[in-house]
């Protein structure tokens, strides 16, 4: 029942940061950032277990490991970008948060380009040649 711990941590941090915001808004921001980091570190352990299983399945079925690595990198980029964007949005700069999300999307596209290229080449090779 780790969800109870996460919810309890969230409620506690919300109350503490409400108290702190009256006195020092900077400390309230750092407190919420710290709580977000705690929850993400906690989730990283759980995601690691899932990824181990996916990795072993991919090794058994002889999938090209480059594709798996690319997908995992994309998930990692999404994870970090989400964390950063949420922390920045909490501090009230939603425009910067949108830029972080945009950067995450662009970097994901850049990572996915080789896979898309292979897919399109496969489709082209299936087409009947015009000659």
């Amino acid at each position: 029942m780790e969800i109870i711990q996460v919810v309890g941590l969230g409620l506690l941090v919300a109350i503490l940061s409400l108290i702190l915001k009256e006195q020092k808004p900077m400390f309230a921001f750092l407190l919420t950032a710290c709580a977000a980091l705690f929850i993400f570190i906690f989730l990283a352990d759980k995601i690691a277990a899932v990824i181990r299983v996916i990795e072993s399945l991919a090794l058994e079925t002889n999938v090209n490991l480059v594709y798996l690595k690319t997908i995992l990198k994309i998930i990692g980029i999404a994870y970090i970008a989400e964390l950063g964007a949420q922390i920045v949005r909490d501090s009230g700069f939603s425009s910067i948060a949108s830029k972080i999300e945009l950067a995450g999307k662009v970097l994901i596209i850049v990572m996915a380009v080789p896979i898309i290229e292979v897919l399109i080449r496969t489709v082209i090779s299936m087409l009947p040649s015009s000659a």
Binding site: F38, I41, A44, L72
Partner: peptide, 15 residues
């Protein structure tokens, strides 16, 4: 904490 999180993500996601 941020450093710890980034190290963990780096090891998990094969960076």
């Amino acid at each position: 904490l941020l450093d710890q999180l980034f190290q963990e993500i780096r090891t998990i996601f094969l960076f």
